[in-house]
Simulated scan of single mutants.
Amino acid sequence: MADDKEAAEALIAELQKNIREAFAVFDHETNNTVDVREIGTIIRSLGCCPSEAELHEMLAEVEEEEPTGYIQLDKFLPMMTKVLIERKYRPQPEDVILRAFEVLDQNQKGYLTQDELTKYLTEEGEPFTQEEIEEMLSAAVDPDKNIILYKDFAAMMTVEEY
């Protein structure tokens, strides 16, 4: 029983160390605060992939009663520790991502055009911003063929388990 407790405490200590390190990267003034706009990047760097709606819920949990535009480490740390312990917002495995692309590829060509992908990213589900689309296309488009070979892109999108 004591071994289990020690293992749990060690796990929590390791998670909190990783959270503090990720937070510190964006704590430019070293005052244990980061710009609220950086929280999504911090959370994703810790291996979590929340939707924008889920990210807003997380922010609501850690924001001050009067929003300042900054998030305090002492509020972020317990929330993020709980998220990591509960293994919430896990990334999708490669086969699931690949199946999603295959559904979009109605003619089973093995690729999508830039126009097709842009249409799906803006008209279905949670719409991407123009910046997100450009970022995705810059990573996804095969420069020689000017198409998205989604099998290769799905492998590239896969996040290793934290």
Rank of each mutant, 00 (worst) to 15 (best):
M1G: 15
A2G: 11
D3G: 07
D4W: 02
D4V: 01
A7D: 13
E9F: 02
I19K: 00
A22W: 00
F23Q: 01
A24T: 13
V25Y: 07
E29R: 08
E29N: 15
V34C: 03
V34L: 08
R37E: 14
G40K: 02
T41C: 10
S45C: 11
C48H: 00
C49G: 01
S51L: 07
E52K: 10
E54W: 02
L59I: 06
L59K: 08
E64W: 06
E64K: 08
E65L: 13
E66V: 11
G69I: 10
Y70C: 11
Q72I: 03
L73V: 03
D74I: 15
F76W: 03
L77V: 10
M80K: 04
K82I: 03
K82T: 11
V83T: 03
I85G: 00
R87G: 01
R90V: 10
R90S: 12
P91Q: 04
P91A: 05
Q92I: 09
E94C: 14
D95I: 12
I97P: 00
L98H: 04
L98D: 06
R99M: 05
A100K: 02
E102R: 12
V103M: 09
L104Y: 01
Q106C: 13
N107Q: 11
Q108I: 02
K109H: 14
G110T: 01
G110I: 06
L112F: 06
L112I: 11
Q114K: 13
K119V: 13
Y120P: 04
L121K: 10
E126D: 12
Q130W: 10
E131L: 11
E132D: 15
L137Q: 07
S138T: 07
A140P: 03
A140Q: 01
V141H: 06
D144V: 15
I148Y: 04
I148C: 05
L149P: 00
Y150C: 00
F153C: 02
A154N: 01
E161C: 11
E161W: 09
